[in-house]
C-alpha cells in the first residue's frame, strides 16, 4: 500500500463510520420530531454511507476480504438504527411498569435522607 493510499483509506474508513453515526443520529431525531428536513438529512447521510463504501471498494488497495467486510459493515450501519428503534419502542411500550421519573427521583431522595 502506498503512503498516499494508506492515508486515503484510513480517512475513508473513518468517514464511513462517521456517516453511519450521522445516519443513526439523524434517523432517530427525525423519527422523534417527525421532521421531513431531518428525514431528508438522514437519507443523505445514508447515501454518503453507501457512496463511501463504494469508494472504498473501488479506490482502495485493500484485499477482497476486507472490502467485503466494509460492505457488510455499511449494511449493518444502515440496518441498526431502524431495528434498534423498533426494539426500543416495543421494549418501552411493554416496560412502562415504573413510575414517572420525577416521582421516582423524589422517592429515592426521601428514602436516602430518612436513612441519613
Amino acid at each position: 500500500m502506498s503512503p498516499h493510499a494508506m492515508v486515503a483509506t484510513a480517512l475513508m474508513l473513518g468517514a464511513l463510520v462517521v456517516a453511519g453515526g450521522a445516519y443513526g443520529l439523524l434517523y432517530c431525531v427525525a423519527r422523534l420530531y417527525g421532521s421531513p428536513i431531518l428525514g431528508a438529512a438522514s437519507r443523505t447521510s445514508c447515501g454518503a454511507l453507501v457512496a463511501l463504501a463504494a469508494a472504498i471498494v473501488a479506490l482502495t488497495p485493500l484485499h477482497f476480504g476486507w472490502k467485503a467486510l466494509v460492505v457488510a459493515s455499511a449494511m449493518a450501519y444502515m440496518g441498526i438504527p431502524p431495528i434498534t428503534w423498533r426494539y426500543l419502542t416495543r421494549l418501552h411500550r411493554g416496560g412502562n411498569d415504573a413510575s414517572r421519573p420525577a416521582e421516582h427521583a423524589h422517592r429515592a431522595h426521601t428514602r436516602l435522607h430518612r436513612r441519613a
Binding site: G24, C28, V29, L32, Y77, I80
Partner: peptide
C-alpha cells in the same frame, strides 16, 4: 481485523438508545 471492524456496531446501537431516551 474482523472482530475489531465489528466493534463500532454495538456503539451505534448505544447512540440510538441515548437519542431515544433523551428525546
Amino acid at each position: 481485523g474482523f472482530f475489531s471492524a465489528l466493534e463500532p456496531l454495538p456503539l451505534l446501537g448505544m447512540v440510538v438508545h441515548a437519542v431515544y431516551d433523551a428525546g
